[in-house]
C-alpha cells in the first residue's frame, strides 16, 4: 500500500509539474523544485485529491512543508 501511494504520488507530481524525471523523497520541499510554484501547488492539491478520492483540510492545503508530510497525510486518508 505505501508503495502504491508513492508511485501514484510520483505520477501526479510528474504530470502536474511536467517533469518526467522527478524523484520524490520525504525531505523534498517546494522551494527545491523550480516548477513547484504557488499556482502549480494548487494544481497538485486538486490532482492529488482527485487521484486518491480524498479531501485535504483547508489548513493542510497550504500547510504541507515537505513531501513526507504530504505523503503521510495521503496515507492516513486512504487507509
Amino acid at each position: 500500500m505505501p508503495h502504491d501511494v508513492d508511485d501514484r504520488l510520483t505520477r501526479v507530481f510528474r504530470e502536474v509539474l511536467a517533469d518526467p524525471g522527478l524523484e520524490l523523497h520525504d525531505d523534498l520541499t517546494a522551494e527545491s523544485v523550480p516548477a513547484w510554484d504557488s499556482l502549480a501547488h494548487v494544481g497538485l492539491m486538486f490532482s492529488i485529491e482527485s487521484e486518491f478520492g480524498i479531501v485535504f483540510s483547508d489548513t493542510e492545503m497550504s500547510g504541507f512543508g515537505t513531501v513526507g508530510e504530504l505523503r503521510r497525510a495521503v496515507e492516513r486518508k486512504v487507509s
Partner: peptide, 14 residues
C-alpha cells in the same frame, strides 16, 4: 469554496 479560500480560484479546477 475551498479553492476560492486557498488561491482565489472562483471556478473549481475540475
Amino acid at each position: 469554496e475551498r479553492y476560492w479560500f486557498l488561491s482565489k480560484h472562483a471556478v473549481g479546477l475540475g
